[in-house]
Every structure is written in C-alpha cells, then in structure tokens.
Amino acid sequence: MSVGEVAERVGISQATASQQLTLLRRGGVVTSRRDGKTVFYRADRDGALAALSDLQSYLATCC
C-alpha cells in the first residue's frame, strides 16, 4: 500500500503514517519500494516474526 492508503485506512495524517512506516522499515517489519514519487510498503513476514520472537524472549526474562 502507499503511504496515503495506509494513512486513510488507519485515520492518521500522511506525515504521521510516513514517519511510523519508516520506523517499521528500519525495524525490518515492513519493506518499501519507490515508484516515481510514491513509496509502497508491504509487510515483511520474516521480519515481523523475528520482531515478535525478540519481544517474546524479552518479556519472558524481564517480567
């Protein structure tokens, strides 16, 4: 989805969606590709699973 599509679906501004998607991309949870001026994002299954595994491990030791 494009940044605009994500923003519309979740009810936030495009600027906020772009900032959040950038963080998710840096964390490996989503991937992006550019087509002209539009950036499209897609969930990265392996990255999301790794992030969830890391969170689960952290919660098992911290709490």
Rank of each mutant, 00 (worst) to 15 (best):
L55C: 08
T38D: 03
G27R: 05
R26L: 12
L49H: 05
R34C: 09
L52A: 15
Q14C: 02
D46A: 04
D44F: 10
R33C: 07
D46W: 01
G27K: 09
A50L: 08
R9P: 02
V10K: 08
T31N: 06
A43D: 07
S32C: 13
L52T: 12
G27I: 01
S13D: 05
A7G: 01
Q20C: 12
G28Q: 12
C62H: 12
Q19C: 12
L23I: 09
L23R: 11
R25A: 09
E5M: 10
Q14S: 05
A51P: 11
G28N: 11
R9F: 05
V3C: 00
T16C: 04
A48R: 11
D54I: 13
D35A: 11
G47T: 06
V30K: 00
L52P: 04
G36A: 03
Q20R: 15
R33A: 08
R26N: 14
G47H: 09
D46S: 01
K37R: 15
R42F: 04
R9Y: 04
G28A: 13
Q20V: 05
D54Q: 06
S57H: 13
V39E: 01
A48I: 13
V3G: 00
L49E: 10
V10C: 12
L49S: 07
A51V: 08
G47W: 02
D46I: 01
A17S: 07
R45G: 07
A43C: 09
S18G: 02
L21H: 05
Q20G: 03
V10Q: 06
Y41C: 06
